[in-house]
């Protein structure tokens, strides 16, 4: 399993329009091309997860995530907001890079946890925030993941 397999360039937004955390979640959920009702349910679940504690892990990175029956397979979206979003992150700094992960309640190959773990591990690498800042097109994110071998 490679992380890049879960990304599509349509779900990589290097210039999020959102100015708030909620709007960023909505904007990224919309990348999956679900119907409006499913978007609403996913957003609600992501918010409920955020209410348990922020998914902003620091160093400008947030990893909102949830499982929901409205998706049939694991999906990841990435959004970048260079000016930053208030994610109430652990280090209290704004989130600039958001990896959003959604998965169905049950998966045949149970990829949700490994994917979450790999993105968390990737996010902790020292050079990753700068590399994410330097991306000039969505394909470069895929190439970055490939270069990291994840």
């Amino acid at each position: 399993m490679k992380l890049r397999d879960f990304f599509s360039t349509e779900a990589i937004k290097l210039d999020l329009e959102a100015e708030t955390k909620d709007d960023a979640l909505k904007e990224l959920v919309a990348c999956f091309g679900l119907d409006e009702k499913s978007d609403g349910i996913l957003f609600k679940m992501l918010k409920r997860r955020e209410n348990l504690g922020s998914t902003g892990i620091g160093r400008g990175i947030a990893i909102p995530h949830c499982r929901s029956l409205v998706v049939t397979r694991l999906r990841i979206a990435f959004g970048r907001k260079i000016s930053g979003l208030d994610f109430k992150a652990i280090d209290e700094k704004p989130a600039r890079y958001v990896f959003l992960i959604v998965a169905p309640p049950l998966e045949v190959s149970n990829q949700y946890l490994p994917v979450l773990g790999k993105i968390a591990q990737f996010s902790k690498e020292a050079d990753v925030p700068d590399a994410l800042a330097a991306l000039s097109n969505p394909q470069e994110l895929i190439e970055l993941l490939e270069s990291k071998g994840i």
């Binding site: 679940m45 348990l52 990893i63 409205v70 979450l116 968390a120």
Partner: peptide
Amino acid sequence: LEIQDLQMQRGGLADGTLGDMESDVFD
């Protein structure tokens, strides 16, 4: 659907593996 999704979230937290990650990575 919302109830089920929340119960899945709860189950994941309670079963250890996700709970450990939520605790370690997301505090």
